[in-house]
């Protein structure tokens, strides 16, 4: 009996809820931890990054304008869908990160749990991070956290699912939209996540996912005038990338920058100690009004 020839897939980008090829027409081979062929992925270009920022900007007001309760429900629904794709994620994590099946399953569980943890923050973060300020005068004075806007996220290179979820979910909680540059060598969980998001209730453009080289695409994200913040955590271990140079570029537009925490990727299995990663992508707005009769 002859073995069946497998149907090999060429994946595309995820921009504005659609799956376009790279405008450059380029692809690259994705290989597993042992060097075996897994798939072809789109090699994103500067134009793709710009298209993704445009889609993210278009989606931002609507996502931020949804009620916190609604954002929480929509994000929780994503966790449900992630759970339904456990096997596919586990296989991709195992292949890409070179984990045993049990280890990969644990990673998927942690990723789903992390997404649920963040989904629950949507309607609490303003209560924790806001304030009624007792000013010395007859004024009502209230501070609330608001989303920064469009956030460029360089996803972790090694931890291709749990790391990705850990940096993406906190961006979305308050109403930011994201342009994610996935792990270069391990993009498959990010691609599968985009398929999950496309069939979820997350509005199109809220999350846009690019696959490709950090050296090529990240400078355009951090230099883009319509990107408000960048998370550079995932630059650790990316080939030929200097986060210092990216941060310097981001300075030209006064972007909020999350630096890598150290020389190596953090231990993503640890549950975050509070909402600091959410708050890194928020602005505090303070509203005053006189009191009187």
């Amino acid at each position: 009996m002859s073995t069946r020839l497998e149907v090999r897939k060429t994946y595309k980008l995820f921009i504005g809820g659609a799956f376009p090829r790279s405008e450059s027409g380029r692809t690259y081979e994705v290989r597993d931890a042992k060097g075996g062929f897994l798939a072809n992925a789109a090699l994103a270009s500067r134009k793709d990054a710009r298209d993704a920022v445009k889609a993210a900007r278009a989606a931002q007001a609507g996502w931020a304008g949804a009620t916190a309760y609604n954002r929480g429900q929509v994000l929780y629904r994503v966790a449900e869908l992630l759970e339904g794709r456990r096997d596919q994620f586990a296989a991709e994590v195992a292949a890409g990160e070179g984990l045993r099946a049990k280890e990969a399953e644990a990673v998927v569980s942690a990723a789903v749990d992390r997404w649920v943890w963040y989904a629950g923050w949507t309607d609490k973060v303003a209560q924790v991070a806001g304030a009624a300020n007792p000013v010395a005068g007859p004024y009502f004075n209230l501070s609330v956290p608001e989303p920064t806007g469009v956030v460029g996220v360089v996803a972790p290179q090694r931890s291709s699912l749990l790391g990705l979820v850990s940096v993406l979910a906190p961006v979305l909680v308050t109403g930011n939209t994201a342009v994610v540059l996935s792990s270069t060598d391990r993009p498959l969980p990010a691609i599968t996540l985009s398929e999950v998001l496309a069939t979820s209730d997350v509005p199109k453009g809220v999350v846009n996912i690019l696959t490709g080289r950090v050296t090529e695409v990240a400078p355009h994200l951090v230099g883009h005038m319509d990107v408000n913040a960048v998370d550079l955590t995932g630059t650790v271990g990316a080939d030929g990338v200097s986060w210092a140079e990216l941060e310097a570029t981001a300075a030209d537009t006064v972007k909020r920058v999350v630096r890598p925490g150290g020389e190596s990727e953090p231990d993503w299995t640890v549950t975050p100690d509070g909402p600091r990663r959410i708050l890194a992508f928020t602005e505090t707005k303070t509203v005053w009004h006189p009191k009187g009769i």
Binding site: A131, N133, P134, V135, A136, G137, Y139, N141, S143, T284, T286, W288
Partner: peptide
Amino acid sequence: RFDPTSPFG
């Protein structure tokens, strides 16, 4: 209006 208790930025 400015006040020590009121965040500004």
